[in-house]
Nucleic acid binder design. Structure first.
Lengths: 337, 337
DNA sequence: CTGTTAGCGCGTTCAA
DNA sequence: TTGAACGCGCTAACAG
């Protein structure tokens, strides 16, 4: 038996394929009686139009390609969620590929999507230093929006947060609470977000006249484990550090463990701030102060831009959108004034 | 200009489409020299075969449909991850649809995938009571594997854990540590997993001769919030409860908060156990004892079965696979003996 | 080793 | 209001 085609329906209903096609897409004028008839036959045959055949002629797939460094990473969930909501509202499906934190892999994903599988691509990028998307032939003519990354070529729209300002805000908050010996734990050295946040930290420290900031920077790698290890170093350094600023929440969580293991109390003995505002931060003890990156909103907006550009609703998409990071205060910063 | 087609390549290379097709799929014998030439032309034209056209004739899309109740839910990440690994290894892409915890929506997703968009479907099911997949015409001939659910019709392969045994094991563990007044916090009433776990709890309690177990069952809804609220009830009930068994980890996390808010210490004042073993459990303070559901493995195996069935590598897929839940001991159970 | 031919299932003219 | 004919881009016989 196999799947039934539009031809089977037409034959059984005693009409031509064209008429069936018309009722499927409810367009054109079809007599109510024949429409009813065709609908009935379609059901009886359990007919579903074949989407490949359709795409071949319409040049539309109604699906959006989504690329993420790691589906399993808590950090990306809200981006995806935001994008999904807009996708559903506009009748798009999502095809998911994972770049596994690899630039080459990311390019491969772009290539897959370049084979007419999708109408556009939402790339949630590994935030590498550099601009690897220039001269990428896979992209030719394919609507694309990049999230969590800023490009200066102004041809691919990007959505990002102001990481430098985030670093600045967090550091200011600690300074205003009377801290001066503030350590900064970085993420991976090739991650732009980490570098930018560190720059903000430096600027705030400089402005406050804390000259030793260079010696207060500790290299981490964004993982919980490194947060734990680095924090041990900080605690054993004996520099009189009273607060730690982590370049992301996961490291802060590791840090909290290390601090507790030392028998110290947060924030009484040591203050800390994270970065990103993962949902699970509120589950941690203590819930800690962090800088929120509006990830849901970013995914949402990214998908909107993308669909606009696919459907030419609006040809003047902005070249870049940059959101502020917001300080979310919880219970991990003690005033020393 | 637009996208270039196989015809453009053929013309520019001075050969026929068939020859180009042969090198694309590297099959058949093609003279090395012409192959080189064609490859070169393909690059120069930035040619990528159109996957819709291909699917139309091969009847293969090389993509797998994945249905999940909520992409954002921590619980599902490892299933997806396991499935993804196998998918990548076998050159399949993944198309992701979210059923949003709704049976109707789930059916709609199945329908979408029934339109030839995918070669098979991996359904990570909302674990509802009942068997809604019988007589579902969308499924006709479509390879399908269901995860996190057991069906007894023995036509659709399912992968699940032995939830009842999990409930039994957890309760036994508490009993063996000298607890008798053990509360059980359920999940949503229409969730089979919760009911099964509760049944295991009951059995263990009965075997141990604890007759009041009916009065120790508290209804929750799987959310952290309900875990918090129910735990407050338990603490205020004054029944002499010394341990709480939560039907999932999220509720246990809420419970931990409630217990701490009361100024009580875990496990000294109160023991507890969760269920599922989410990754984030190790981040919680204290890391708590729970029953592990091998989610990565389940996703992995599910995808393997599915691909086997698509490629007819193996027509005798098992009708159901049931994994054990394993007790993962951490620091939330105090011995009272 | 290579070219010719015939569809895959559908939407879209253009006539009727 | 309907049907006939064509083509989307590709693979798969079948010849040569």
């Amino acid at each position: 038996m196999g799947k039934s085609t539009i031809f089977d329906v037409a034959k059984k209903a005693g009409v031509s394929k064209s008429t069936v096609s018309r009722v499927i897409n409810n367009q054109g004028n079809v007599k109510e009686k024949t429409r009813k008839k065709i609908l009935k036959v379609m059901r009886s045959l359990n007919y579903h139009p074949n989407s490949s055949a359709r795409s071949l002629v319409t040049k539309r797939t109604n699906t959006i390609g989504l690329i993420v460094p790691d589906i399993t990473d808590f950090f990306y969930l809200q981006f995806i969620k935001g994008a999904e909501v807009v996708g559903i509202k506009n009748n798009y499906n999502m095809m998911l590929l994972s770049s596994r934190w690899d630039v080459e892999e990311e390019r491969y994903c772009l290539k897959m999507f370049g084979e007419g599988r999708v109408d556009g691509v939402l790339l949630i990028s590994g935030n590498w230093v550099g601009e690897p998307y220039l001269n990428c032939p896979e992209l030719e003519k394919m609507p694309l929006v990049i999230i969590d990354r800023t490009l200066n070529n102004h041809v691919i729209p990007t959505i990002n947060v102001d990481n430098k300002n985030g670093g600045y805000l967090g550091t200011r908050h600690l300074l205003e609470n009377g801290h001066r010996m503030i350590a900064f734990v970085t993420g991976l050295a090739n991650q732009k977000a980490s570098l930018d946040r560190m720059e903000g930290y430096r600027q705030a420290m400089d402005e406050a006249g804390v000259r030793e900031s260079e010696n207060l920077i500790y290299p981490g790698d964004f993982t919980e484990k490194s947060g734990y290890q680095v924090t041990r170093q900080v605690l054993e350094a004996g520099k009189g550090i009273t607060a730690i600023f982590y370049a992301n929440d996961l490291m802060a969580i590791g840090g909290i463990k290390a601090i507790k293991d030392k028998g110290l109390i947060i924030p009484d003995d040591l203050s800390l701030i994270g970065c990103d505002d993962l949902e699970l931060v509120s589950l941690i003890d203590p819930p800690f102060t962090t800088l929120r990156q509006p990830r849901y909103k970013m995914g949402y907006t990214g998908m909107e831009l993308l669909i606009n550009s696919i459907e030419h609703k609006d040809n003047i998409n902005p070249a870049q959108i940059i959101y502020h990071m917001a300080l979310i205060q919880r219970n991990s910063v003690q005033s020393r004034s």
